[in-house]
Amino acid sequence: MIARNIRSQLAVFFTLAVLAVAPGIAGAQELGDRLPKIDLPGLSTYAPAQDTSPLATASLGRITLAAQLIQDGGDITRGLVWRIFETEPGADGKLRLVASAQGGTQSFDLTPGQYLVHASYGRAGATKRISVGNDAKREAFVLDAGGLKLDAENSGGVRIPSDKLRFSIYEAEEKPGGERALILPDVSPNTVIRLNAGVYHVVSTYGNVNAVIRSDIKVEAGKLTEATVEHRAAEMTMKLVRQAGGEAIADTSWSVQTNSGDPVRESVGAYASMVLAEGDYTIVAKNRDHIYQRDFTVEAGHNAEVEVIADESTPTAVEGAD
């Protein structure tokens, strides 16, 4: 019954279509207006898929990866990054990353075969080729790594503010030309850096001028190496005044030079504050059309204020200089 009703309604629909477009047939539009509304049943645009058989899945092998700092040491429980790659490069010449995870010991389900695994722990790391089979297995990585924590103090054991102190860690071996490969820049004091065991070249910078100390530090596997270097420097504040103890004169250009005339630092302002390594210096202050200068000495650990007197009657004042 339902099929006959559908066929009947379809026949009326196609008759209306022919009348609406056929030229010369009078009354087609009026006929269409008098026809009843046709409700066609909804039609599916596709047939739903039927699962007639289960999908085949490849067998996987479970591999558990663990890492220790030293041979026969305890497993590292956090801070590890695992990356598993195929052994053959792709069309782009790179090894395809298969899986990755973070934390401590990790397990992966992989298609049996050969893989390259890289374990990184901070700046320490190790790479190993592994074989995955149908049976579960465990692979241990010995990173041969330790920790390094750096700090610095000024002469006499004076604490250096942490915001004025930074470290850079380089490889100890020099390349042709005397350069070293940078491993990690801008390290804050008392930060633990994880490194492979070995000797590293550490540069400690107090301030941002010339107070720099270089040292070679050995990192031992399984240990935290704490190193404190000593700076011999002081923080100096320069100001140009009309008389001793007077107010600083604004819009002053400053130039600090070594006693041999080599430029050290330039700045502009009422004050010039900077950390300088111990030694003898000359400060040159320019204000308007006058230049004034003064020799001074930096003593390690003794922060000081250096006043330059703006007195044109003194030999240190040079009038009309550019």
Rank of each mutant, 00 (worst) to 15 (best):
I2D: 05
I6Y: 15
R7E: 15
A11M: 09
L16M: 14
V18K: 15
A22R: 04
A22G: 00
P23F: 10
I25E: 08
K37E: 11
K37G: 07
L43I: 15
Y46L: 06
P48W: 11
D51V: 15
A56V: 15
T57C: 01
S59Y: 01
A67K: 00
G74V: 03
D75G: 07
D75L: 14
W82M: 06
I84S: 03
E86M: 09
G90R: 11
G90T: 04
G93P: 09
V98M: 08
A101P: 01
Q102V: 07
G103R: 01
Q106C: 06
T111S: 14
G113I: 13
H118N: 10
S120W: 04
A124T: 08
A126W: 10
K128Q: 15
K128W: 07
S131M: 14
A136R: 05
K137C: 09
F141W: 10
K149I: 15
L150Q: 03
D163T: 13
K164E: 14
R166T: 15
R166N: 11
F167R: 12
G178I: 04
L182P: 01
L184T: 05
D186S: 14
V192C: 00
I193P: 02
R194S: 09
R194M: 08
V202E: 02
Y206P: 05
K218P: 01
A221Q: 03
T225E: 02
V229E: 05
H231K: 05
A233W: 00
T237D: 03
V241W: 01
G245I: 10
S253V: 07
S253A: 10
Q257C: 08
Q257D: 04
T258I: 02
T258M: 02
N259I: 05
S260F: 06
S260H: 06
A270C: 09
A270P: 13
A272C: 12
A272K: 11
V275Y: 03
E278F: 11
G279Q: 10
Y281Q: 12
T282Y: 14
V284C: 00
A285T: 10
D289N: 13
H290C: 09
I291D: 07
R294M: 06
V298P: 04
H302L: 12
V306P: 02
V308T: 10
I309S: 04
T314S: 15
D322Y: 02
